[in-house]
């Protein structure tokens, strides 16, 4: 597996921490899946109930890498300020950079994304940009200082799977040395396996696990799928062909007609 800014992950599953039925189920999902990375966020904290403090204590107990996001940001300024605040709170230079450009699809504003990535990279951040499968944008992000790319599979929370397999395959071929993560849109473990079969380095998902009837079981299913896809990619899959080819040898077949 390629490294993420010098960090080698033992498990290629990155899990979000939102929308679980309870903190205990969230923790169980991480334990059963062995996910190596937890995405987290920042929100307004009340001076009286301090909900964020308990959450942060629980995440630290999981012992996983923490990847803060800039979810909900729509401008370069918002995203950069949020990233600065996240670095101080979470104590990591990693930032999952989201700059949303359109509400119905949560399509990233790729122009603002590149600019924010440049500012943050120059400031020492290690940027994980949530982007599309656009190769030109990807190239710009790498030039801006990103060493990881995170194209979407489908719109966030949609569970649609991989809307553009061709685009993801092209991205893998075009950037053979760059760690690639499919972030968002996955609904089923089989889709995560497909991502890994394409030669990607990790998958990042949240809703498909958190909204499952049994989130911990689904997290484990995704983990198994990721491992299977990863092993399949290493095993060098056969090339598909248009016509049938008998797998059973014809030589030595009995003459019975």
């Amino acid at each position: 597996m390629r490294e993420f800014y010098g960090t080698k992950l033992s498990n290629a599953l990155m899990l979000g921490t939102a929308q679980y039925p309870s903190p205990a189920i969230l923790a169980d999902a991480f334990k059963r899946s062995g996910a190596g990375v937890a995405t987290v966020s920042l929100r307004r904290e009340s001076g009286t109930d301090k909900a964020g403090q308990d959450f942060w204590a629980m995440i630290r107990e999981l012992g996983v890498h923490v990847l803060p996001n800039t979810a909900g940001c729509h401008t370069v300024k918002e995203a950069v300020t949020t990233a600065q605040m996240a670095r101080e709170v979470f104590g990591t230079p990693w930032i999952k950079l989201e700059v949303i450009g359109e509400e119905d699809t949560l399509h990233p504003d790729t122009f603002a994304l590149v600019e924010a990535a440049r500012i943050l990279s120059e400031d020492g951040f290690q940027v994980f940009p949530y982007t599309t499968d656009d190769l030109v944008v990807a190239e710009r992000l790498l030039r801006a200082g990103c060493e990881v790319l995170m194209p979407w599979g489908a719109p966030i929370g949609s569970g649609q799977g991989l809307n553009n397999v061709f685009g993801l395959r092209a991205m893998r071929a075009h950037f053979p040395e760059t760690p690639l993560v499919v972030d968002a849109g996955l609904g089923l473990p089989s889709q995560a396996a497909q991502v890994m079969e394409l030669g990607f380095d990790a998958v990042l998902l949240n809703t498909a696990v958190a909204k499952a009837g049994d989130p911990a079981a689904m997290a484990e299913a995704f983990s198994l799928a990721v491992s299977a896809g990863q092993l399949a990619a290493i095993a060098d899959p056969m090339e598909p062909r248009d016509m049938a080819a008998p797998s059973t040898p014809v030589i030595g077949k009995a003459f019975l007609s």
Binding site: T39, S41, L42, E45, G52, A71, I156
Partner: peptide, 10 residues
């Protein structure tokens, strides 16, 4: 003033 703390995120 904005005061932010860790929160669940995807």
């Amino acid at each position: 003033i904005e005061v932010l703390a860790p929160m669940q995120g995807g």
